[in-house]
Design a protein around this nucleic acid. Structure first.
Lengths: 341, 341
DNA sequence: TCGATAAGTCGAACCGGTTCGACACGTCGA
DNA sequence: TCGACGTGTCGAACCGGTTCGACTTATCGA
């Protein structure tokens, strides 16, 4: 394998000069720079990543800790990955992916061994057990998802409180008086998915403020069950004129349920979901929804992480907790309320 | 950061001895081994990955080249990733993930810089432009998907020919005389997805051998279109009693289509799909299907790759092209044919 | 009892980059 | 005309591991 010594020899200069010519970290005469470049091209030189990492203590790799949970909806996870990998590549970083169930030890390994310059954590739980490890690490970290304690890390998440309010207030404004909110299943909440509560509580508050009835329920995460849940809900609350879905599986199952009950949106029922535009497209869901923007969150996390790695953010600079404002994408599934009788 | 010198000093031995004590590459007295281990624990020592890679020319990282295409179905891709990452971790390797649209340059970069010890390629096209780069690389590679030219790499794929035969022969045995096969959209084929042809041609041959009529069509890959396609097909071929689906989107859309036409499986129509069990579960698809086993393919590719990296496969050992035998998972969606009139 | 062998340890060199200090040269201002 | 300064280049040291050859000591068989 050709190394920088070979390049230097071919160009007739010292190794250090070859290095400076290629990295630009010191002034080099135009003529020498050309000779070195040419030699590197001719020999097909590529710097050895390990050697460079050793010398600079920088690997140009970002660690990505995901967890592929069976009840997470796959399309959303892939969008996170996409946002993260694309942005990293644009900024000159590669991605070291870990989907290890034991996130703690995976995180410790890749940070302690200096394989990565920084870390992005996905599926962050309210009391995420990876956070202590991350805080003890020498590298900075960015989270997608809001933990209870945000010290020492940069945090990005959808503003689920605002999302809950937007959903309720949108339908309230149209005159609805009784709504149903279907959340993620309870075990997602138990695992630390506090966003479920955040949206639900804000929705309940907004409903109370408007004097609206809001029925809340944790729906299942898989198809046959969630379909049954939806039927049962519509049976149980015949006066409800609006349906709010903080549950991807429920949104995917709804068209079939409504068809079999001969209900139409928005004529018989107004519906607002919470999922990504990509998700809506791939299932061709006709419901207005709060855009959950997974790719955008991944992108933001990487951007900030790289800023910190490259110290454009001085050490003293405060860590950020940034919420993406929930945007309601209108697909025409809401209207004035009509009795469902 | 604590390095091996610190550990050696704390244990009262030479750096080399500390190294031998930890790697076990030379005999070391029990007493010294204990002292070194203890010192390493006390100091919280973790070897520097870059330094080790430089010294051993081994990174213990596997490159994973995927492409997140909008018309690939997300759940399947995630299953490939899962199979690859889990297996790699079990074998002591980390995963460097690239989803770069320009797979060629990404592959060249990570191999030339010695960041990885080997590479797994997903979404392999018939004339994949990454293959020349891979063959020129110093590291071994394993493919998921069958290219035209398999020299110099290990290849793993589902046996799509056999899958086509199994589908047709299963329904032929039940007495069906007219079938429809819905394949992936044409642009998947154009991109080099030869598996579409492989299944379709084998199915046509099998049908011819049995004297059965088989209508073939390239279906759309997204929901509203594929639903229309299915309706049109059922209209166009009222005599068909069996439906074969080599198209995930079609399978996902079928329940709605059948319900709206008031058709039941297997009473009115026998159906066989080709997708993973996981996919079937997450959409609760009630159709018997050929298991496409993406996680298993990922697992096999990594296993073989690691064998080659660690040279348990001597250089002379022939490269393998291994097909996973298609297994028909019976979900009760096939039966004796009935006229659909 | 002696030499061959094995076990255990050490120091030095090496992997392939980067970076620091020193130095040679040319230019400019006083 | 001379010293100060800026520019471009070089050699050596360093990052943190691994590995090779040499050396010491203990063990065994003849």
């Amino acid at each position: 394998m050709v190394n920088i010594g070979d390049v230097a020899r071919a160009a007739g200069v010292a190794r250090s000069t070859a290095s400076y010519a290629m990295t630009g970290k010191r002034a080099v005469s135009d003529e020498v720079r050309m000779r070195v470049r040419q030699a590197a091209m001719d020999l097909g030189y590529t710097p050895n990543a390990g050697a460079r990492a050793l010398a600079t203590s920088r690997s140009n790799v970002i660690g990505l800790l995901a967890q592929f949970l069976p009840d997470e909806f796959a399309p959303a996870m892939l969008q996170y990955l996409q946002g993260v990998t694309d942005t990293a590549r644009d900024l000159g970083y590669d991605i070291l992916l870990s989907s290890d169930a034991d996130g703690r030890s995976a995180l410790k390994r890749i940070t302690d061994s200096r394989m990565v310059d920084g870390v992005v954590l996905l599926n962050v739980a309210e009391d995420d057990d990876r956070l202590p490890v991350l805080r003890a690490a020498a590298q900075p970290g960015a989270l997608v998802g809001l933990p209870r304690d945000c010290t020492g890390v940069d945090v990005f998440d959808l503003d689920f409180e605002e999302a809950g309010r937007v959903m309720v207030e949108h339908l309230a404004r149209l005159g609805h008086r009784e709504l149903i909110l279907v959340s993620q299943p309870e075990h997602v909440v138990e695992r630390g998915g506090a966003y479920v509560w955040r949206l639900q509580n804000a929705a309940l508050e907004a409903a109370a403020a408007k004097g609206i009835t809001l029925h809340t329920v944790f729906g299942a995460a898989t198809q046959p069950d969630i379909g049954r849940d939806l039927h049962a809900l519509l049976d149980a609350h015949p006066g409800a004129t609006g349906l709010l879905l903080n549950n991807e599986a429920a949104a995917a199952a709804l068209p079939t349920v409504l068809r079999s009950r001969d209900l139409e949106t928005p004529g018989d029922l107004s519906v607002i979901g919470r999922y990504s535009d990509e998700f809506a497209r791939s299932f061709s869901l006709p419901y207005s929804s709060i855009e959950s923007a997974p790719d955008r969150l991944g992108r933001m996390a990487v951007r900030q992480l790289v800023r910190r790695i490259e110290n454009q953010v001085p050490e003293s600079d405060p860590y950020v907790v940034r919420f993406v404002h929930p945007e309601l994408v209108d697909r025409g599934s809401t209207a004035l309320p009509a009795s469902r009788q």
